[in-house]
Design a protein around this nucleic acid. Structure first.
Lengths: 219, 219
DNA sequence: GTCTATATCCCGATAGAC
DNA sequence: GTCTATCGGGATATAGAC
């Protein structure tokens, strides 16, 4: 019944969940920096002070959105690779899923990558994003005869290239009509090209392994 | 003499240029969305109304910053490839220059790619960014036996991969110490891998050619 | 758990004096 | 070309009633 009315009031309903949904809506419409608790409250028909019963502050809510977004991202990256037959195809599928997520769920993508969260303040975020690297590292390992250094180098290159395709697609660089599928397809092709030319990728220094950013440039 | 005092007043000086400089400073410190004319005015010791003699509004100033940033970006991309001996090396150098610009001049990078300018309203921006594609397309053409379709496919893949490396580096995914050089180097290697495996890149549809985004997702 | 009310702050943009 | 003053708006967050 919750979906019946447009201006549903959440008095005594599950305001916490409703705030998360509304946050995603607002981020999709105006970007993550323009998101405000005040506007979310207005849209839900509650007082601007109500969210503070469920979230310590604005950043706390955005961190919760980012955690949810991580789950969706990981599902997207792993789902697309379910039917892959070769490791190279699995890697390309992971890249395609990553890009598809970026363009089809831009708000969630921004929640993960586009906000200025103080990540040390939200350790659950680091935990939520951990499985992501496995989706790239697993196939890369199979492609590299279990050489972990070569696999890490390839996985980083592929994930980074997928990231670029998602961002470029968001910028509109792949046009407007059919841009989603085009960007997704190009990310897959680029991945296969990286695989084919992977001998040009020397090992990363110090066993770096696609870690979640721990210390982003402060802002 | 302009640099002598910290709280230099720009009364009757070149306020327009000073505003551009200060905008870059502020964007570097707090991000482009948090940039405000009011704070820039405060920092320069002028009234909040003063900037409106030089810029129609906030967006107009940000567009001017983006134009300047485009010039620096193009210089960075072409400069790094000056000494390249092979087309593959030239392409890798362009990618390295792109990433170096992204991490060393993050404010300028954000001015070009991270703002929500109404680009049709600022045609000079499209003009300023035009030479960028040549830096990638030129070497790609030489690598593709002057096949323009194959060259475009390669150029898009390389530029997009460079973009991904720049963004990932900004996120801190390449760590903190030595992150700049690491990201720059990885972008170069990834480019060489793409070149080596470029037969996996089918032609783009409809003669697409790395155009500047004309219709970014509205926000 | 939500409301009312409020304190405090910041912003973009304009009018009119000098 | 810059200033003073101001309008109109929106934000975060808290206090205290119910």
């Amino acid at each position: 019944m919750r979906r019946s009315g447009k201006k549903q009031r959440y008095h005594h309903g599950d305001l916490r969940a409703a705030l998360l949904d509304t946050a995603v809506e607002l981020i999709a419409e105006r970007g993550i920096d323009a998101f405000s608790l005040a506007e979310a409250s207005r849209r839900l028909g509650v007082a601007v002070s109500a969210p503070y019963r469920h979230f310590a502050d604005r950043e706390d809510l955005l961190a919760a959105v980012a955690v949810r977004a991580c789950d969706v991202l990981i599902a997207a990256v792993t789902a697309e690779g379910a039917g892959a037959t070769t490791p190279a195809e699995a890697l390309a599928a992971a890249a395609r899923g990553y890009v598809r997520f970026g363009v089809e769920h831009r708000a969630l993508f921004d929640a993960v990558f586009g906000s200025t969260l103080d990540r040390p303040r939200h350790p659950e975020l680091i935990h939520a994003s951990a499985p992501l690297k496995e989706a790239f590292l697993g196939p890369a390992l199979r492609l590299s005869d279990d050489d972990p250094d070569a696999a890490a180098a390839l996985a980083v290159a592929v994930a980074t290239t997928a990231h670029g395709h998602a961002l470029m697609a968001q910028l509109g660089a792949f046009g407007t009509r059919g841009a989603v599928e085009l960007a997704v397809a190009r990310a897959g092709f680029a991945t296969l090209a990286l695989v084919a030319g992977r001998t040009a990728l020397p090992p990363l220094p110090n066993g770096m392994h696609l870690d979640t950013p721990d210390a982003p440039r402060p802002r």
